[in-house]
Write a protein that binds this DNA or RNA. Structure first.
Lengths: 223, 223
DNA sequence: ATGAAGTATGCTGTATACAGAACGCAGGTT
DNA sequence: AACCTGCGTTCTGTATACAGCATACTTCAT
């Protein structure tokens, strides 16, 4: 049972469809709404304690983000990604992060790099504690921050969209501690290259990191 | 006055919000809905002859595409892009097209390249006729096709989104026949490099083409 | 027993109705 | 004259109502 939205909880004057949007995204990423599953508007609306109108608006937004697919007269279905689609997305992400890496080495301030280093240390700590969720979130955050260093809004936008589409899959793909370890090693290299402003090396490591990411998730996908 | 949607016109079983989506996109690109303009749901709904419900759904979709911005309790506003934002988008597009170019030289079939050549010839003809709209549409189509050659759905997706965001601006930027001419020249080079499967050259030309594109539009933007 | 046709139910797609917030205007006060 | 204040209008945000399509089930015929 999902707890309904408490009325005066949304102090931020956040509109309801926006809150629903976040909730649906989370439920998809967590796998509560599994790929291929049809979204029954009546049922989900009841679970969330909202009417179908703002719910439908949130679904349309998710459709544009690529997390659900709209099937005419049959509503929305949680998007199911093929192995090729995942690989394609990772390839685009690699290109985007490499582009960001080049620019980051030119313009990134010491402080912003230090902030990423701090996140990395925290991530490593989470790894050693075995705190999977925290590790995972920090991992994503580091990649987001790296792209942000390029100070290109459009670049961050498209990167975020693709990262969001893959969140569910990569979350599953990081099961098994041995997979965490290799990812950590690559991250260490990334931070070092960044601190040295070594664009070529950073680009190389980022590329390798995402190739490895593909290897980590590929087995969890049927072609 | 905008002609309302004829009821049985949508034979394709296309849902109404989808049709509205296309219409709104077109009106934004054509400048009928100018940047910064608020979208009055009542008024636009009346003009299109539809109720607010599907209209709002279409607006949410446009928001996710980045063509409009949602302001809480104040509805949607047509997104206004700064010079930097435009430049950033063009830079990402350049990266994407270069990535596509590399892959395209590896896997593109003769037929698919010939198809692009045909589009180019048609575009040149439109140029010589002075048919601006046709020229413009073929120009966009050629770029879309080039990216499609890479056979990477995610790549095409994000490219399309960015291209759509810039459509209005690039349309305006192509005013003045002298600007057409330079763009045509670059296109000729692109096709030749593609036919020769010369990835390095193609990537270089694509990069130059988009740098030029920035020069063509920059003056029409205030910083 | 199996297949086809008709019916019944549930869900989506769209319209309408209602509540609440923001903006404008008028009138009064300093 | 400028500014504050209160009211009214207009618009957004959400809920509800209704129509039409799709699917599943039942029933009948072969």
């Amino acid at each position: 049972m999902i707890s309904p939205v408490p009325a005066p909880n949304r102090i931020e004057r956040q509109s309801l469809h926006e809150e629903i949007l976040t909730r649906l995204r989370d439920r998809i990423i967590e796998g509560d709404l599994a790929p291929g599953m049809r979204l029954n508007e009546g049922q989900i609306g009841a679970e969330l304690g909202v009417s179908r109108t703002p719910l439908r608006e949130a679904i349309k937004y998710l459709a544009s983000e690529g997390l659900v697919e709209l099937v005419p007269t049959r509503g929305a279905v949680v998007k199911k990604f093929s192995a090729k689609e995942v690989r394609d997305m990772l390839e685009v992400i690699r290109t985007l992060e490499q582009t960001a890496a080049l620019r980051a080495c030119e313009i990134a301030s010491d402080d912003s790099i230090a902030a990423i280093r701090a996140l990395h240390d925290e991530m490593q700590a989470a790894y050693e504690r075995g705190d999977r969720m925290r590790y995972y979130k920090l991992n994503q955050e580091i990649h987001t921050r790296l792209v942000a260093l390029a100070e290109n809004g459009a670049l961050s936008d498209v990167h975020t969209v693709l990262q969001t589409r893959l969140k569910r899959i990569r979350y599953v793909g990081h099961e098994g501690p041995e997979k965490w370890a290799s990812a950590i090693g690559e991250h260490v290299e990334m931070i070092e290259a960044l601190e040295a402003r070594d664009a070529a090396r950073l680009s190389e490591v980022v590329g390798r990191h995402l190739t490895e990411a593909w290897e980590r998730v590929r087995e969890s996908l049927e072609s």
